[in-house]
């Protein structure tokens, strides 16, 4: 199967999953105790007003009509109105996206940049202090809840030593881009420094679990590859050790690691939600939490749909990348 046919097939599967996601999210409405009108109105409200609001929200329509109303707008970016602010949900969600994406990408970069060299070091210095250090680090790293790590980082580095802010996000990369577009390079550089200073602790918090996980995977994958006959054959033909290790063994190690990183993106986004809560980072996570506390179901539903759809899309991308780097995949 060619790469393009593979992509088409994966996209169709993805569409199906997205439809399923939307349907599940629609169903969330039915498990909530009480109806949305209660959220908007005081309990002792005039029944007539109440009936009017219910009609306005379409809650007395037959189920299939409500489902159709819910699902038909989504392809056009219509995720409904917030119960609380009466503004479009889509706009609120989109406004939060950059913050969450920045955080997720920063954490991934932290993880990859630290974990892969550490895993390789650990595998090539087996049973030496570096290996034991890396092994202990990855064990503790995958066992530490990231919100607690965040609290500890704030405690030590922000409150006690005053090296970093307790975070929040005074400026984002989108804002910096706008400054640059406006020609104000000095302000953009300042903005970037501020951004970096504020994102450091959240990125470490979110990235630690992944760093630990990828270190573990890289180490065991690398050990596995270094034991393969082709590595011995590469040495036998005289290849320098760096080539044997990095061009041959490391690349074959990274191929499965890429898939795992893709699979773990869900955990990454889940982790982002709680990291945002710890650092008052104004992303999708805080939006989700606030919408639950405010019982603003349309905002919660819209955020869930965006998160799940993004996750599905990224997974298709990862699969394509995997197929690209691994010639053995028959795209099946």
């Amino acid at each position: 199967m060619s790469l393009s046919r593979f992509l088409i097939k994966r996209s169709l599967q993805g569409l199906f999953v997205i439809w399923g996601v939307i349907t599940v999210v629609f169903g969330l409405r039915f498990i909530s105790p009480g109806d949305p009108a209660n959220v908007l109105l005081p309990p002792d409200v005039d029944p007539e007003v109440r009936a009017q609001v219910i009609a306005e929200l379409g809650l007395n329509e037959p189920l299939y009509v409500q489902y159709w109303q819910f699902i038909s707008g989504i392809p056009f970016g219509d995720l409904g109105l917030s119960l609380v602010t009466r503004t479009p949900v889509a706009a609120r969600v989109v406004a939060r996206l950059p913050a969450t994406m920045e955080l997720a990408i920063a954490a991934t970069i932290v993880a990859v940049v630290i974990a892969i060299p550490l895993g390789v070091l650990s595998a090539t210095r087996r049973h030496q202090p570096a290996d034991y250090g890396a092994t202990v680090f990855s064990l503790v790293g995958i066992s530490t809840p990231n919100f607690w790590l965040g609290v500890m980082l704030i405690l030590v580095l922000a409150v006690q030593l005053n090296l970093f802010p307790t975070s929040q996000r005074p400026i984002g990369l989108d804002g910096i881009a706008m400054l640059l577009a406006g020609g104000d390079v000095g302000a953009a550089v300042d903005g970037f420094v501020t951004w970096l200073w504020h994102i450091t602790l959240p990125a470490i918090t979110l990235g630690t679990y992944f760093t630990a996980l990828i270190t573990r995977l890289t180490r065991s994958g690398m050990l596995d590859q270094l034991g393969q006959t082709y590595v011995r054959a590469s040495r036998a033909k005289g290849l320098p050790e760096t080539l044997v290790r990095y061009k041959h063994a490391l690349r074959n190690t990274l191929i499965p690691v890429i898939t795992v990183i893709g699979l773990q993106l869900g955990t990454l986004i889940g982790g982002a939600v709680i990291t945002e809560a710890v650092f008052a980072w104004p992303g999708l996570g805080t939006l989700i939490i606030n919408s639950i506390n405010a019982r603003d179901w349309p905002v919660l539903q819209g955020s869930l749909i965006i998160v799940a759809v993004g996750f599905v899309l990224v997974n298709i991308l990862v699969d394509a990348l995997y197929a690209y780097v691994n010639p053995q995949v028959a795209y099946d």
Partner: peptide
């Protein structure tokens, strides 16, 4: 010693399938 591998000694292994890197 390493520089001898290739011009002085080289080796053919038993199982050709596992003796080549599958992704190159």
């Amino acid at each position: 010693r390493r520089s001898l591998r290739g011009p002085s000694f080289s080796m053919v292994f038993q199982d050709p399938m596992s003796s080549f890197n599958p992704s190159i």
